[in-house]
């Protein structure tokens, strides 16, 4: 009981500090206007907008790829040295520090594929970094679907794909979506992988395509907190509050969603 209280204490403290110091700056104008005066005043809209871009593009890449990989590993591939190596690689990928991902992103996407510093390069880097998350979540939810259902399908002459589409996926979709939402919150907060690949210090315009650079909330926080002189105290706290609010919102959404779907499940 006491330990549990100790666990939530830091979260509450962080939130309380942020609200206390940065709450006053939050307003519609703060969310929807551009930074002014060399980023010492004004709002955060370009960063917010850029973060949405980055996360959306990263999801479009990693979700299909991750779900397909998990389907293959869980429904098609047998247990052999090849799949064991793949599984090991996935676990290791999850353990790679984000700055290493960032440098890989620079080498592979910015330079080798020639995407330049752009949303595409940054999102690809984020996608690769969060791929293990989505693969593991999907695999777990696929394996939670009782084997008897697959057998029943196969014995009626359904192909593997028919079995997956009609029975396995519909019953695993809650777990997969939970993984996706968790990925959103993780992607939103990451700074290192995007700072060399696509996120800019300051931009006077909004991105128009995936080949543009963009500002991002996480990097913006780093910038206003450490790189720009004479920033009023409440500004970085406000940015941090918005960032953490998005992450907490996404996490609670994923928990609520999982509980709702679990309540509907009956077998």
């Amino acid at each position: 009981m006491l330990m549990t209280a100790l666990l939530i204490l830091p979260v509450l403290l962080i939130l309380a500090t942020l609200i206390h110091k940065g709450g006053s700056i939050i307003s519609a104008e703060f969310l929807f206007s551009e930074p002014t005066n060399g980023m010492t005043a004004g709002g955060i809209f370009p960063a917010l907008y850029g973060t949405i871009w980055l996360v959306a593009v990263a999801l479009m890449i990693s979700v299909p790829l991750g779900v397909a990989a998990a389907l293959y590993l869980s429904e098609y591939a047998g247990d052999n040295w090849f799949t064991r190596i793949i599984n090991l690689a996935i676990i290791n990928l999850a353990g790679v520090p984000s700055i290493v991902h960032a440098l890989f992103g620079v080498g592979a996407f910015v330079l080798f594929f020639g995407f330049g510093t752009s949303i595409l390069a940054a999102s690809l880097t984020l996608a690769i970094m969060t791929l293990p998350l989505i693969i593991v979540a999907t695999k777990e939810s696929l394996q939670a679907v009782p084997h008897a259902f697959r057998e029943a399908c196969w014995n009626m002459g359904a192909t593997r794909w028919q079995t997956i589409r009609k029975v396995v996926l519909p019953n695993a979709v809650s777990g997969i979506l939970t993984g996706v939402i968790l990925e959103v919150s993780r992607t939103t907060g990451e700074t290192a992988p995007i700072m060399f690949t696509g996120a800019a210090f300051f931009l006077p315009f909004l991105p128009e395509s995936v080949f543009d650079q963009t500002m991002a909330l996480s990097l913006h926080l780093y910038v206003v907190a450490t790189q720009v002189p004479n920033v009023p105290d409440e500004l970085p706290y406000g940015v941090a509050l918005v960032l953490i609010a998005i992450v907490l919102l996404m996490n609670s959404l994923s928990i609520a969603f999982r509980m709702w779907l679990r309540g509907r499940k009956k077998w």
Partner: peptide
């Protein structure tokens, strides 16, 4: 067609 020991209706 095959019928099993434990009824195995699909979750549909």
């Amino acid at each position: 067609g095959m019928v099993f020991q434990r009824p195995n209706p699909l979750p549909l």
